[in-house]
């Protein structure tokens, strides 16, 4: 076996990992931006509770989060059952469930990064845009969001990386099914459990490092481009 010759199983795991992480970030980004904005700008009763709830996946053991997802969203779960019955959506033991597990686990990181960027936007600039005739939504789209860009980029990369590495919640919620839920870390784990799996495990290990570095480089390039834009 060659160190640079990927087997179909490994290619599948890589593609699935990118697919699942991409979807996890894409699906949680709008909600993440909204949540970050709410936490940064609004004051309301129960704010600390919401903050704690969002951060829960960060402090809970991932297996516990995965188990809670299974209990709630499994085919017989409190939310999963009606979801299946009325909308025909099944999340347990397929890639959509893996996306959900990754999204839930990476959500706190996304929200933290984006929230910092909301707090860095000067409300005075937003007020200025209001006096120039833009409504609240217009101001958010043309002023707040563009100025949040660095934090959003950081948040996307953190969430993407966290999703790529997601293991505990995924294996508990959607198990380890080849082609459906077997992402890079799960495939790597599987290879360490079989005889002669070392070379494959090393290949996946190198692959993970490469993907993570590529993500970091993308983030760096985007961040620099943004900084250059602001400095003119």
């Amino acid at each position: 076996m060659d160190l640079f010759d990927l087997t179909p199983v490994e290619i599948e795991a890589l593609r699935l990992s990118l697919w699942v992480s991409g979807w996890a970030v894409a699906a949680s980004l709008p909600l993440g931006i909204l949540t970050a904005w709410i936490l940064a700008r609004l004051r309301f009763p129960g704010k600390n509770l919401l903050d704690g709830l969002i951060h829960l996946p960060l402090v809970l053991p991932p297996v516990v989060t995965g188990y809670l997802l299974l209990v709630m969203l499994g085919r017989n779960g409190t939310i999963g059952a009606p979801l299946h019955k009325y909308l025909g959506i099944v999340l347990a033991f397929n890639w959509k469930g893996a996306v959900l597990a990754a999204a839930v686990m990476s959500f706190p990181l996304l929200v933290r990064a984006v929230r910092l960027s909301v707090e860095s936007v000067d409300p005075g600039l937003e007020a200025a845009a209001r006096t120039l005739g833009a409504g609240p939504v217009g101001v958010f789209i043309t002023v707040t969001l563009p100025l949040m860009a660095p934090g959003i980029i950081t948040g996307i990369i953190l969430a993407f990386a966290r999703s790529l590495g997601e293991f505990g919640a995924t294996i508990t919620f959607v198990s380890n099914i080849r082609g459906q839920t077997q992402t890079l870390p799960l495939a790597l784990y599987t290879l360490t459990q079989v005889p002669d799996g070392e070379t494959g495990a090393m290949r996946l290990c190198i692959l993970s490092v490469l993907v993570a570095m590529a993500a970091l480089i993308c983030a760096e390039i985007l961040a620099r481009r943004f900084a250059a834009r602001i400095q003119g």
Binding site: L125, A128, R130, G135, V143, L147, R229, I230
Partner: peptide, 22 residues
Amino acid sequence: LPPEKRRLGYVFQDGRLLPHLS
């Protein structure tokens, strides 16, 4: 009336130009 409906031009002490726009 909200600020955007008041038809007033406001020049702030600190300029407050939008940094991401030319």
